[in-house]
Computed example of a mutant assay.
Amino acid sequence: MVAILKKEINSFFSSPIGYLVIAVFLIINGLFLWVFNDNFNILNGGFADLTSYFFLAPWFLIFLIPAITMRSFSDEYNQGTIEILKTKPISDWGIILGKYFASLVLIIAAILPTTVYIYSIYELSNPVGNIDFGSILGSYIGLLFLASAFSAIGIYTSTLTKNQIVSFIISIFISFFLYYGFEGLANYNIFGNADYIIQQIGMNEHFKSISRGVIDSRDLIYFISITLFFLVLTNFRLKNE
């Protein structure tokens, strides 16, 4: 697994892909939060918090993470190197986890620089330092669990096709539906008493729960289950190729 992890990370950073993903994520967030004169601008909000960032970040990750993971197995299938990879002394799970953790490392590298926003709102608050650290910490933890689930989805969809673009689109669709689709369906009030249950199936509800600063084991189990589910599907696909 470690060998695959190193290989994937080196692949990310030996080409413009890794730097481009990090740059795009940081630039887009920076523009919306500090430059554009819109409802997400922290300076226009009147409150020293990162609510806008934690609202926008998951939507950006829905697109950025599939861009990272789309080549994980699609590229191996397209170039015919998957057979060579599977003949090496490493298990299918070792291959999967190596690629999975490599994509997760890249996402964490993109998220880490945004912690400078904490210092910014710390200094902007009145009095200085009057911010909700518990909520911010919870939101970052929630963002990491979201990223882990999106990465697992992206790794799985990359096993479905040799075409990276198709993998990218499928990954976006599944990630979007799991993040907001169930909540969107519940908002139509067409399931009666089951609307609450439908809403609880979606990622957004669990992300918002963690973002309140209270780490509930049910939310953590939910994200871990989603992640493991798609990694198991990936392993199933790999064994049947």
Results as ranks from 00 to 15, higher is better:
residue 6 K to F: 05
residue 9 I to D: 04
residue 13 F to P: 11
residue 19 Y to K: 09
residue 30 G to Q: 07
residue 31 L to M: 13
residue 36 F to G: 05
residue 40 F to N: 09
residue 42 I to C: 05
residue 44 N to C: 06
residue 57 A to E: 07
residue 58 P to Q: 06
residue 59 W to D: 00
residue 61 L to E: 05
residue 67 A to F: 15
residue 67 A to I: 14
residue 73 F to K: 03
residue 75 D to F: 06
residue 78 N to E: 12
residue 79 Q to M: 10
residue 80 G to C: 12
residue 84 I to P: 00
residue 86 K to Y: 07
residue 88 K to Y: 10
residue 89 P to Y: 07
residue 90 I to M: 15
residue 99 K to S: 02
residue 99 K to I: 06
residue 100 Y to D: 01
residue 103 S to R: 14
residue 108 I to L: 14
residue 110 A to T: 02
residue 114 T to D: 04
residue 115 T to Q: 04
residue 117 Y to T: 14
residue 121 I to G: 01
residue 139 S to Y: 01
residue 139 S to L: 01
residue 146 L to S: 01
residue 148 S to H: 06
residue 149 A to M: 13
residue 149 A to R: 12
residue 156 Y to T: 03
residue 162 K to W: 03
residue 166 V to K: 08
residue 167 S to E: 02
residue 171 S to Q: 08
residue 175 S to Y: 05
residue 179 Y to G: 06
residue 181 G to K: 02
residue 182 F to R: 03
residue 183 E to S: 13
residue 184 G to T: 09
residue 192 G to R: 10
residue 193 N to K: 07
residue 195 D to V: 11
residue 196 Y to K: 14
residue 197 I to A: 15
residue 200 Q to G: 08
residue 202 G to N: 05
residue 204 N to K: 12
residue 210 I to P: 00
residue 211 S to E: 06
residue 215 I to L: 14
residue 223 F to H: 03
residue 223 F to A: 03
residue 223 F to T: 03
residue 223 F to D: 00
residue 228 L to C: 09
residue 230 F to N: 00
residue 231 L to Q: 05
residue 238 L to N: 10
